[in-house]
């Protein structure tokens, strides 16, 4: 069990990631704040508590891996990588600019710490499976984490990968579902309902937990539990709020892929102070 001190530290990290997300997308004038904010607590828990990494050696073979399958949430990943020391925090403000290593969607060719190039939805879980299979072949004990969107799981390939992970008993794969209830065209239940999500993953042979994705203690506990599971991949369904932490963005479908304007950046930063 993590101490209250550790939980408080991680909560502050998550707030810091959220501030970066607002500043970065604000400076870029485009990008995806909503789904970055909903994932900030999960990403903070992974990058500042669980992932065994060495930023000085991004290609260290034994490192844990994190695959951002919902690649449009690149800002939250970049914020975590910068805070973890992969590149200078100042570079965050180059997001989406010509020549920047911080491409609109994560590009592993150019930015150290990015484990997989993503952006085309539905493809990340399969890559995570591949990394886990390689780890098993090489006798390495690293774990692979993946973050999926609840709209993203409408892609058929997600379910192909879900089947494969269970078939190959990939117990070193832990996936999160950012269950924020929204995609671009509206609430997921109205556009193309993926429900009931927990039952689906269970039926595909995964160990499934459902948690409050903004409760740091719950996230830590869920990952601890997942890591103890053997013989099966694990899905943590995180009940989240799209735009979390910025009152005017919360549960607003319009904030999926629109950047805050300067006054909105100020308002958001004040709330996240």
């Amino acid at each position: 069990m993590a101490t209250q001190e550790e939980i408080t530290r991680l909560e502050e990290k998550a707030r810091q990631l959220r501030r970066h997300i607002i500043r970065m997308t604000g400076a870029a004038g485009s990008g995806h704040p909503g789904g970055s904010l909903s994932a900030a607590d999960i990403v903070a828990a992974l990058y500042f508590h669980f992932l065994c990494l060495d930023p000085a050696r991004p290609d260290w073979p034994d490192r844990d891996r994190f695959v951002l399958s919902k690649g449009h949430a690149a800002p939250v990943l970049y914020a975590a990588l910068a805070e973890r020391g992969y590149f200078p925090v100042d570079e965050l403000l180059t997001l989406r600019r010509l020549g920047s290593r911080l491409q609109g969607h994560p590009d592993m060719k150019h930015l150290p710490g990015v484990e997989m190039s993503t952006g085309s939805l539905g493809q990340g879980l399969a890559a995570a499976n591949g990394m886990a299979l390689a780890g098993r072949l090489d006798g390495r004990d690293y774990r692979v984490y993946a973050l999926l969107g609840d709209g993203e799981i409408q892609e058929g390939m997600i379910w192909e990968a879900a089947m494969a992970a269970a078939h190959y008993k990939l117990d070193h794969v832990t996936a999160f579902l950012d269950h924020n209830g929204f995609q671009i065209d509206g609430p997921t239940r109205q556009v193309m309902s993926p429900e009931p999500v927990a039952d689906k993953w269970r039926a595909f042979g995964w160990d499934v937990q459902v948690i409050d994705g903004h409760d740091m203690a719950a996230i830590l506990q869920a990952v601890e539990k997942a890591r103890a599971v053997t013989g099966r991949p694990q899905m943590i369904v995180a009940e989240t709020v799209k735009g979390k932490g910025c009152s005017f963005m919360e549960n607003q479908v319009g904030w999926h892929g629109v950047a805050p304007k300067p006054d909105e950046v100020e308002r958001a930063l004040a709330e996240l102070a």
């Binding site: 609109g104 969607h105 590009d107 190039s117 952006g119």
Partner: peptide, 8 residues
């Protein structure tokens, strides 16, 4: 497409 980048 612009800022979304090469993937898009």
């Amino acid at each position: 497409v612009g800022e979304d980048g090469g993937s898009h």
